[in-house]
Computed example of a mutant assay.
Amino acid sequence: MRENDPAQVQDFFTERAADWDSRFPDDGPAYAAGIAEIGLRAGDRVLDAGCGTGRALPALRAAVGPRGVVLGVDLTPAMLAAAVRAGRHREGLLALADTGRLPLRDGVLDAVFAAGLLTHLPDPPAGLRELARVVRAGGRLALFHPIGRAALAARHGRSVTPDDMRAERNLRPLLAAAGWRLTSYEDEDARFLALAQRE
């Protein structure tokens, strides 16, 4: 699979949606810990971009409280259906949408959480600009994965390459060109978490 071909991404996740959560049953605490570092406040408006089965939605809801807005968007109907079966639609609004063309007004969000999204974007610079478009000045972006780059590559029988866009030296200018300032970067076996602020 080409990681960033939208049709193949959709096919890949459609085939795996039914058992996605059971394949990664222990990721919940990592998601909650990553979300805790975003700095969300009660009443904030947050997007889970590429939400999949909605595993982040409960922690996002807990962070913004009942007055906050939690929106999950994904390109794959089967993943959203799995989120509904898991009851996660009760934690936020779910929408079928392409994160590269979000059906949102400019600057309406306080933050975006994106787990494993970056490598699936067909045009990462444009995708990061689109996320910046919908976030207010000073708002936050969290690029997350429940395991680090090296551990993820090893899981797939690969090694990390110097041109990996998630490497800090590559990610920092990529984010800056899209209107984000990288404020924190962590890439350990236990997780990947890059935090950025909307300029």
Rank of each mutant, 00 (worst) to 15 (best):
A78W: 06
M79W: 02
M79N: 07
L80N: 12
A81H: 09
A83E: 03
A83Q: 05
V84L: 07
V84R: 15
V84P: 01
R85N: 14
A86F: 08
G87C: 12
G87R: 13
R88L: 11
R88Q: 11
H89M: 08
H89T: 04
H89C: 02
L93M: 11
L93G: 14
L93Y: 06
A95D: 03
A95V: 15
A95T: 07
L96W: 05
A97H: 04
T99E: 06
R101N: 06
L102E: 01
L102P: 00
P103E: 08
P103N: 11
D106K: 15
D106W: 03
D106L: 12
G107C: 05
L109T: 10
A111T: 09
V112E: 04
A114D: 13
G116W: 02
L117M: 10
L117F: 05
L117C: 04
L118S: 00
L118T: 03
L118I: 12
L121Q: 00
P122A: 13
P122V: 07
P122H: 04
D123Y: 06
P124V: 14
P124R: 09
P124K: 12
P125D: 03
A126L: 14
A126M: 09
G127S: 11
G127W: 01
E130M: 14
E130S: 13
L131K: 06
L131D: 00
L131S: 05
A132G: 14
R133A: 02
R133N: 04
V135M: 11
V135K: 01
V135I: 03
A137G: 11
G138N: 08
R140E: 12
A142C: 13
L143F: 14
L143S: 07
F144A: 08
F144Y: 10
F144S: 04
F144P: 02
H145Q: 13
H145T: 07
R149V: 07
